[in-house]
Design a protein around this nucleic acid. Sequence first.
DNA 1: CTGCATCCTTCTTGATACTG
DNA 2: CAGTATCAAGAAGGATGCAG
Lengths: 133, 133
Amino acid sequence: MSQGNTGVTPQVVHAQACPVREVLDRVAGKWSVQIIVAAAHGPIRFTELERSIEGISRRMLTLTLRNLERDGLLTRTVHPMVPPKVEYELTSVAYELHATLLSLTDWAERHRVTIAESRAAYDAQHSPELLDA
Amino acid sequence: MSQGNTGVTPQVVHAQACPVREVLDRVAGKWSVQIIVAAAHGPIRFTELERSIEGISRRMLTLTLRNLERDGLLTRTVHPMVPPKVEYELTSVAYELHATLLSLTDWAERHRVTIAESRAAYDAQHSPELLDA
DNA sequence: CTGCATCCTTCTTGATACTG
DNA sequence: CAGTATCAAGAAGGATGCAG
């Protein structure tokens, strides 16, 4: 544990952390998850996503959509009509991810209050610690 | 379903997406998750984290640690000794998150190959589409 | 050992305007 | 409708040096 350490622990941590990183990198953006959620109940069109997500720009919607498509998380179907119609649909892989995301959501909802309190307490103790008297 | 829509769907999507966003915002950084993983097997010191995570800068370690502490995900214990000793330990809330993260890891491991292939296929079709002949 | 302050670079995102 | 292109702003992260 001193310095003859062959480096086992770091490797283990690394081996565990990497897959998580991969997921996170893929889902990290501000919008990926919301797109997955919005598309979870069936095929959805570009404009519908744009209105559903509220706050997303056309640019980011396009970019995020492309990345998700690239990773095989959703399919893009172009319907050859005169007002163009493109539909996006989650793949089974993405549906699995969506299911998994639910445990995250659950965690967030169970602890959001606690976390908010913790944060408030922390801020109260660290910012205005000058006026203790 | 046409235009008399009162806006139910968007709201629902929003209501579901926000908690997820909260989790992600908290875990979003490159390092938060790795710190949680590294601390998952018990109290750990600053320098140990620094060596375990491999690639993290002192600056980011400190910042991320502070944020996690602020959110009540880990505790910081200062041992008053002459070489200072500070230990970080996950809280129960963080342990729950760690457990949840496992399902994400699981998803990543189950599909990492598929995703890599999908990505390769996408790239093959979109980058060099100029040399089709 | 633990950690903060400063500077600098890169990545991400938003705003805006134009096209098939 | 469904994008693409370009520009600019801001946040995240890295490098380095100093301090309790």
